[in-house]
Design a binder for these strands. Structure first.
Length: 257
DNA sequence: ATGACTCCCAGTGGGAGA
């Protein structure tokens, strides 16, 4: 079984690439971020025709998330219950017995800004939500665009990025607080090539120079960890003519014991 | 060179992203 997460940076623009990618990587479940579409404009028919059930939760211009699965998914929750939010950032459902939480974490813009404060409050609320979900669903995966580079080895130039957005001690502490719930960064369960990134700036030929950050993550619960057999970043879609700035991250799971 | 690109909504520019 394979799960994946991908920030598509506009599903209106990227739908053909998504359908191509699903042909090449027929994952069992996929969460999308930055769909940037109101629900009335969501291309569910095309996605269903590709063999997926889909739930979605979006808005105009910014944010927007979706959850696709080959088998039916159930108990769908939009955003973080009890956390008042005008932004569409979280979608949760149960797929093949696994609780899947897909998130588009706030960017935060700059340390000390109002958006940074929102990011911190959002992360506090998300952590409480995930803790509650984890208590009810021991088999859980939290994946998405975290907008946090957890360690210096997740940054192409950690000196230049020190203290900058995505790399502040506050954000990294939030990532560690999620790990303190028992969640494990699946990517680091395996030996990985050095300089593995999931995002490259559109500017400065950053992809060609492999100057990026690893900010898209898949965290698995203790009950799921033993089933994880691989976690990889698929750089291929970033080589498209009109790519998203993010690459998909994939998780491979064995059958339940 | 605190910009470079791409998206969106706008409307021939500007904000946001990361």
């Amino acid at each position: 079984m394979q799960f994946a997460t991908w920030n598509v940076n506009s599903l209106a623009v990227r739908l053909p690439q998504l359908l191509d990618w699903l042909q090449a990587q027929p994952v069992d479940a996929l969460v999308l971020q930055e769909t940037k579409l109101t629900d009335d404009k969501f291309p569910y028919a095309e996605i269903e025709a590709a063999g997926y059930q889909v739930s979605f939760f979006g808005q105009k211009t910014y944010n927007g998330v979706a959850l696709l699965s080959r088998e039916p998914h159930e108990d769908v929750v939009m955003n973080i219950p009890g956390f008042a939010d005008t932004q569409a950032r979280v979608i949760t459902a149960t797929v093949n017995g696994v609780r899947v939480v897909g998130g588009y974490f706030p960017n935060g813009q700059a340390p000390g800004s109002e958006k940074f404060a929102y990011k911190m409050a959002w992360l506090d609320a998300l952590r409480a939500f995930v803790a509650t979900e984890l208590a009810q669903h021991p088999q859980l995966v939290l994946m998405g665009d975290f907008n946090i580079a957890p360690e210096d080895r997740d940054v192409y130039d950690p000196v230049a990025w020190a203290g900058q957005i995505h790399c502040t001690p506050e954000e990294r502490a939030q990532f560690q607080a999620l790990q303190a719930l028992g969640l494990v960064d699946a990517f680091r369960l395996f030996e990985q090539p050095p300089k593995s990134w999931s995002w490259w700036d559109y500017r400065n030929l950053a992809f060609r120079k492999n100057q990026g950050l690893r900010i898209d993550h898949i965290l698995v619960s203790p009950a799921l960890q033993g089933r994880v057999s691989a976690c990889t970043i698929d750089k291929l879609p970033r080589k498209n003519e009109r790519p998203s700035d993010h690459a998909p991250v994939l998780l491979t799971l064995g059958d339940p014991a």
